[in-house]
Amino acid sequence: MFEALLGNGLILKKIIESIKELVTEVNFEVTSEAISLQAMDASHVALVVLVLRASEFEEYRCDRPQTLGVSITNLAKLLKIAGNDDSIILRAEDEAHVLTLVFTGKNNEKMCEFNLNLLTLDSEHLGIPEQEYSAEVTMSSSEFSRICRELTQVTDTLNLSVDKESVKFAVSGDIGTGSITMKANNSDKSEEKLILNVSDTVSMAFALRYLNLFNKASSLSDEVVLSLSPEVPVVLKFAFDLGELKYFLAPKIAE
């Protein structure tokens, strides 16, 4: 038996909204420690890694570890029915064929119960070694989101350069070229604050289309942490009370 009660159901709605355009069918691994998933997008250039810690749920029980194959598309449809103030219970019997979702209103005035059919999915796990990155950028997630969105109007590729003092977001397209440079600072204003942890200067290129999809998670966390090393995928980390959502994206490489 697996059962998890989340008082703040909105966070689960936001998480699924943040990944549903990247991954459509995923295996959730449920253990006594956490609910987790790791899934690549269809073109295998982006990876989503989610961990929700058991200790952060209001109630949590997992008698034996289990893999739950879930259609994210269908889960998103059901979660749309849950109100923003609802609590959500996730429940599955051992060797389950369905995932039961229960949405309960704040004043217990209304309860919705749905059984989502589970899928048997091939798992394609990537082994990701722990790694030291050359540069780590911590900044406002809404500011990063805004920069990516605005620069998408110029072109489809973001050139990201980080040194010890600043981070530069540069683009080059048919209409011209441009860049946005932000200096490291410890502003009281969260949208201005930028923390750099840089051992080596890096300069890399990424598809803005993917970064814009990742930035849907900016509703989960005020901050985003970008980890960069030459010639390896960039990591965008969004941390929140319940756990963390990380996106990996392979760099673009000049032909």
């Binding site: 990701i128 392979a250 673009k252 490489i253």
Partner: peptide, 14 residues
Amino acid sequence: GKYQEVLSKFYYVG
């Protein structure tokens, strides 16, 4: 033109 490598180039498939 530019292209994007698949992730399995960087991380082993387990």
